[in-house]
Design a protein around this nucleic acid. Structure first.
Length: 185
DNA sequence: AAAGAGATGGTCT
DNA sequence: GACCATCTCTTTT
């Protein structure tokens, strides 16, 4: 793995706030990058009843148990894809859900995929983000910074965003854990 | 502005 | 057969 993303081997709860401010993009067939700055993440770990990995490894979640730096994509509500970055040591079932981006790259393609709507609604949700970046089950298991996915640290001279931790949303158990991370101000 | 409801199918018990 | 790590559109305040 690229040394700049070695921190992904830490636990998801530690990694999730650190990913805020990173740039995440997919590379299209023509080479163009589509994506933006990560603005919202959630951590999921094995001991967590809300996590797909809570009941052990299955066909669906097996990527979560693999090495850090891979992409875990799952299908939900019969129509939506959601994307995670796998974290932790090999064998641990954990990942960070990418919930929203500030899209600023490949905006023309994103608008085609997402339809005509305000920029603020292009990538403000996990399934919206997948639609915008063209992420589907085809991407499950992809390795970051190889070809299809690009994860880049914020510029050295940039002011780091203030990160706020709050309870996760869209889940029904373990709702007290403050494992959702967003940009404050 | 907020609340409600329908869409729609994989995954696991 | 129940449950979704959701989104969008419609209805109600």
């Amino acid at each position: 793995m690229n040394s700049s993303i070695k921190f992904l081997e830490q636990s998801a709860v530690a990694v999730a706030p650190k990913l805020i401010g990173y740039r995440l993009c997919t590379r299209q067939a023509d080479g163009q990058l589509v994506g933006g700055i990560i603005t919202e993440t959630e951590a999921y770990i094995e001991e967590d009843t809300a996590s797909h990995s809570y009941h052990g490894q299955t066909a669906r979640n097996r990527i979560m148990f693999g090495p850090a730096g891979r992409i875990y994509v799952y299908f939900t509500y019969g129509m939506h894809w959601c994307v995670n970055i796998v974290t932790g040591p090999n064998g641990r079932g954990e990942a960070v859900l990418i919930r929203s981006l500030l899209a600023d790259q490949g905006l023309d393609i994103i608008r085609q995929r997402r339809g005509s709507r305000p920029d603020s609604e292009l990538t403000n949700g996990p399934a919206k983000t997948c639609q915008a970046l063209g992420i589907t089950s085809h991407d499950n298991g992809s390795v970051l910074n190889q070809d299809r996915f690009v994860l880049v640290a914020p510029p050295r001279d940039s002011r780091l965003p203030k990160v706020i931790a709050t309870p996760r949303i869209g889940i029904k158990s373990n709702t007290d854990k403050p494992w959702r991370f967003t940009i404050g101000r």
